[in-house]
């Protein structure tokens, strides 16, 4: 199983890059790669039809979270100026 190893190593590498990046908005694409990798690893760990639901729920949830963080950040800064 080389696939799970590739996915897990990419997830850990990008988690380090999320922490190392200083700019708040430029952290979000790296976080998106982490959530892609975690979604893939969920399915590789447990191949079962119900895992489809868990994958979709996790991915949509993390996307919604990034969307809310970015939108609130831009709105807050604009009001601040």
């Amino acid at each position: 199983m080389i696939a799970l190893a590739v996915v897990a190593i990419i997830a850990a590498l990008e988690a380090v890059r999320v922490v190392a990046e200083r700019n708040t908005m430029r952290k979000l694409p790296y976080l998106n790669v982490v959530s892609f990798a975690i979604t893939g690893s969920l399915m590789l760990l447990l191949p079962h039809p119900l895992t489809i639901l868990a994958c979709a729920a996790y991915f949509v949830g993390s996307t919604l979270e990034s969307n809310a963080i970015a939108s609130t950040w831009s709105g807050g800064i604009r009001k601040h100026e």
Partner: peptide, 29 residues
Amino acid sequence: IVSSPDASAGTLLASCAVYAAGIPGGLVM
């Protein structure tokens, strides 16, 4: 790509669904 599930998310989730349940899983996804 960050702020809404676009074609990249569709490709990943479709390959996950095909791995678990074949073509019907992909259409549900």
